[in-house]
Write a protein that binds this DNA or RNA. Structure first.
Lengths: 113, 113
DNA sequence: TGTGTATTTAACCATTAGGTTAAATATAAA
DNA sequence: TTTATATTTAACCTAATGGTTAAATACACA
């Protein structure tokens, strides 16, 4: 199925290998074999290539060419829409922290000691 | 595979039906058939049940019991970790906006007219 | 023109995801 | 105890995911 943009972003992020690749790329450009190195005990090079392709199709990275190397660069823009979507729900994770905060501040008016 | 928490959250969000279910629940509790109603032209009730189960396993909703109804309630906490992860990349979507901002402010010192 | 290094593609496989229909279960109420 | 409504489970199907190995391609250089 041709997924909508947001689904594509979220499903690209739904894999720890791919998140680790993005984390590595947040420190700077790197080519495929550099990126693959930390994973070659766990999986093959073509497996990493496939993960990179998923990230590329999601627009989260772009590959350029330098001789036989393919330097990859992180592109954060798709994350903006994802975060924007999630921000609508901020109240749903902050409300529980509020309750915790009020409890800790002793606003319970003597309830629970 | 038993996924890590973050992967489970992102993959739960990687489906438009499930995001729509969460959007509906952000307006308040609803039971399964209420939630399913907008989707029954596109899919069956058991399909919706499955989506709700995915959201439940991801900790994004909780179901309670009221006679034969199963009221569902949104739980935003897993989204916090997801947003926290993404915030590390904020600079990667803001930097391009900065460049746009600087361009618009004419900070280009005459380059590119 | 080979040769070495980097990367991708092809062909395949097992598991998961997302859907279906039919049957089972839970609960209230006649 | 039957009936009606709400929901889930079972069994099944197809396509997508994430991995493999082997072969192909891209490029620099002796």
């Amino acid at each position: 199925m041709t997924q909508d943009r947001l689904s594509q972003t979220f499903s690209a992020l739904a894999d720890p290998t791919r998140r680790a690749l993005l984390a590595r790329l947040s420190q700077g450009e790197a080519n495929v074999s550099d990126l693959a190195k930390p994973f070659l005990k766990e999986m093959s090079l073509p497996a990493v290539t496939k993960h990179l392709k998923v990230l590329e199709r999601a627009g989260l990275i772009t590959k350029s060419r330098d001789a036989q190397w393919r330097p990859c660069k992180l592109n954060g823009e798709p994350l903006k829409d994802a975060v924007d979507w999630m921000e609508h729900y901020r109240v749903f994770w902050e409300q529980s922290l509020d309750r915790l905060g009020e409890y800790l501040k002793g606003k319970g008016h003597g309830r629970k000691r």
